[in-house]
Design a protein around this nucleic acid. Structure first.
Lengths: 197, 197
DNA sequence: GACGAAATTGGACAATCGTCCTAATTCATG
DNA sequence: CATGAATTAGGACGATTGTCCAATTTCGTC
């Protein structure tokens, strides 16, 4: 049975991948149609405009990231380990990052450049990570420095992704992960006096 | 007198700005023509293809950056102050970075995504900064850590630019500059025993 | 001032873009 | 099996893209 919901989901999935791999502007209706094996005209039934697809993709990404963070909240015990989960994405997703960069950063950058109406909405994914990281640093006892530390780690991830894509250097990514984890230890030692290490 | 060289220079200048503000793919011949106040057809006389304009823009950017680095090599005394010059670009060019991101990072990202033939050439601007920074760290006495430190600062700049564009937060940029300068002091103190501070 | 090269113009071109509409098909329900 | 709604297919549309060419204008040189 072919429902509209299922087809719509396939379109959004394909658009998500293609927007990531090629960029939003470079991806045409024909590209997505070919990926889903559906006629171009069929799009209009599910989405009135290309921007509507973009909004759906952003919604999906927001949902996916929320689920990922919730999983980390459950499985990893302690804020320190949860931050480490975030940091290690650049290693887990290394191959894709080297090919296409960071899915979040590259989209926000592209949309901000052309002042796209959905630019702010795309930024919310960045905000989501920022707030989650801030929460972790608060639990770590960083107090008013939590926001700064959160943005520091978030910015770090964007920088690593950009250079990873440019230089395709696995060792660099791993070194940077080590560096930020060491920094994390310093932060922890400096703010939490109850810990010996 | 209207020479071909002068017109060509105007085209490259306009393309440089537009590629930065809108992205390479989003910028059409018509856009550049309107900026230079020249007929669209005239382009073919100066450039056979759009990719040729891109190559010329990359050459210009490479040349501009080389001049900038040479200026820093002359004016700023000591590697520490030269690195600080690099770091402070994110403050000097704050307005443009918040609007369009980093000119180097956004271009390399865009070209790498679509596997553009000039992608590698665009990366050379990133390499240029990387090698220059490495040289500064060598002079600072970082030895074999110089390359790592250079990529660390380069990645830092990319991360700051990405988040600056997303959040448009001046205070964040300034805090990050302070943080990286503090880090720089630690590096210096750790590698150079002759200094008391 | 006339000549030829240099430089510019405006438009033709095929392809592709996002958008939109109509006809055909699929499918659940009676 | 018949009916009507849901879903899909295929193509038309105007606009825009990069490319290319022929005709025109500009300009230095004799």
């Amino acid at each position: 049975m072919v429902t509209a919901v299922e087809t719509r989901r396939q379109i959004v999935d394909a658009a998500d991948s293609l927007f990531y791999a090629q960029g939003f502007a470079q991806t045409s209706f024909a590209d997505i149609a070919a990926a889903v094996k559906i006629s171009r005209g069929n799009f209009y039934y599910h989405f009135k405009t290309k921007d509507e697809i973009l909004d759906a993709v952003i919604d999906k990404r927001l949902s996916d990231r929320r689920k990922l963070l919730a999983k980390w909240d459950e499985t990893a015990d302690g804020a320190r380990k949860r931050i480490e989960c975030f940091v290690r994405i650049v290693i887990v997703n290394q191959a894709k990052i080297m090919a296409y960069g960071c899915p979040v950063g590259t989209l926000t950058t592209e949309l901000a450049k052309v002042d796209h109406p959905s630019s702010e909405r795309a930024n919310e994914i960045m905000v989501l990570f920022g707030n989650w990281l801030e929460q972790q640093f608060l639990e770590l006892g960083c107090g008013e420095n939590s926001r700064d530390n959160a943005l520091h780690v978030l910015g770090w991830s964007q920088g690593v992704a950009t250079l990873a894509q440019a230089f395709k250097d696995k060792a660099y990514v791993e070194r940077e992960v080590s560096k930020i984890l060491t920094w994390l230890d310093c932060i922890q030692a400096g703010t939490d006096q109850n810990r010996s290490q």
